[in-house]
Design a protein around this nucleic acid. Structure first.
Lengths: 144, 144
DNA sequence: ATTTTTGCAAACCTTTTGCATGGAA
DNA sequence: TTCCATGCAAAAGGTTTGCAAAAAT
């Protein structure tokens, strides 16, 4: 998962200026345990001393999503959320209890898609897989 | 894909009353070639003689999504759309040109997920796969 | 008769935008 | 100094809700 530092660097490398609000956003994202909404990020900035405007939060998340350090997630509830992640194609498995997400190994999905491509006749351009479940830690917690 | 009749029956079987607006919505959905938004459905009702209120369109789509005759789709553009479908677990492959969607065979996804479950330690509860590409017909059309 | 459903309009929420000010390079 | 970024507040979508009237059972 991308850390605050990694995210800051990402802004820099992509030619964006390193501003105070962006430092704050980077740090806030680094602190999120699981997925978070734009509003939650905004709220947590308001809880601290370093405040950031609503528009800036959205603008920053936009950029980071573009750069791949954050990914948009559509939760089963219909809410839109984000998770911090590495900028490479991958999928997430999201814990439905704690919201934490793990990058998942491809586990045969790629070959399944090639198979599908051949069978369906579609030329596949992109895909999106979201898996929801209960993570090991939450399973352990509920057994206890 | 669910037809207008199938959808009407679905309302009935689930204990909802068969009203004129619901008939109209069912028929409009039956006419959609590919995916459609709530607003598009509303607009197409306005084009015809049979009008339906905005709220009713949303309420009907809610019910049908619940019953599984329609599925919510998150397009790569970020828009929310729906597609008519059969009420069984399945995935869609959506044409990025014409918007039509086909139910796709499972093609190894299930086993890939079992593998993932074993490897990640998560207890998988649900998943969501959306595949986007160009359908055979649109490929042919662009070659021509 | 009773209960559900509708339609309208207002309320809501989330996200975007215009624009003048402030800050980074 | 120049250009980018911020923050505000307003606008814009899209979706939901309260409520009285209308329709289905």
């Amino acid at each position: 998962m991308a850390t605050a530092d990694t995210i800051l660097q990402a802004f820099d490398n992509a030619g964006y200026r390193l501003t105070e609000p962006r430092r704050v956003v980077a740090s806030l994202i680094g602190q999120q345990a699981g997925h978070f909404t734009a509003d939650e990020l905004l709220a947590s900035s308001r809880r601290g001393r370093a405040q950031v405007g609503r528009a800036t939060v959205f603008r920053s998340l936009d950029i980071l999503a573009e750069l791949g350090y954050v990914e948009r997630l559509d939760l089963p509830s219909g809410d839109h959320a984000f998770v911090a992640c590495e900028p490479a194609h991958h999928h997430h498995i999201v814990c439905s209890q704690c919201g934490r997400s793990t990058d998942m190994p491809d586990s045969g999905l790629a070959s399944a898609l090639r198979d599908l491509e051949a069978r369906s006749g579609y030329r596949i351009e992109s895909h999106r897989l979201e898996v929801f479940g209960v993570c090991p830690a939450c399973q352990a917690a509920s057994t206890r």
